[in-house]
Amino acid sequence: MPTPAPNLASGEPLADPEPDPGSGSEAEGSSQPSDGPSLDREAEERRQADIRDRRLVRRLRAGDQRAFEELVRLYQHRIFGLMLRMIGNRQEAEDLAQEVFITLHRAIGQYRGEGRFYTWLYRIATNTCKNRIKYLRGRNFHRSVPVDETPEAHDPGDGGPVVPLQARIAGPEAMTEGARLQAAIQRELAELDPEHRLLIILRDIQGLSYQEILNITGLQEGTLKSRLHRARVALKERLAPHLA
């Protein structure tokens, strides 16, 4: 998919990514192993979400601030979650997530409605995040606050029921062990190269499809797959002592 690379230096969304083949009725979303009816349901949910987003964007472009607030409410958790997992500092993540929505408000005129709205929003978010990481590196910023893994910090949201790690570990020490493993995963994830971290967050945590990630990152499909592989191998190696 020859999507032009986003302008990472400016952080501006500039233009829509290429239209998503799945923005109509075709299923192209998360391809976690699932059965046929489930895929159909997911495709239908996506189609409905796209229709809703297009309507909200139209209203926002007409100056309806309530449409903007609705878009913020719909995507705040995903964008904040992306920022927090990328940056690792709650306050910084909140500032950045706010920046993303303010950029959305300012640049909505540049969104032509050809690609999916939320792919475009993610593009703004990843550009904002990369620019901030570059800036923070220059200032020797260190993650001072770990990602909050307390139960109240999480919500299943629209992504379906969350199976906590605690539920995967049997026995009376499940809570402690699950929390320890969860913290270890987040810590090791945070140590990955930001490009690798981003791909794991987009694909494995937020469940975006290859097509969506290609549109967001501007990568070629082969590059995405090999880079995702390297990211997973790097994380596996880092997690090895915790999984032994």
Binding site: V72, G81, E94, Q98, V147, H154, L165, R168
Partner: peptide
Amino acid sequence: RVMSLVQSLPEIQAPPDFAEKVA
């Protein structure tokens, strides 16, 4: 196995007043 563990990390919720702050 690593993918399965990563996929099961719970989603993170934005602060309750996030939308209001943005507005």
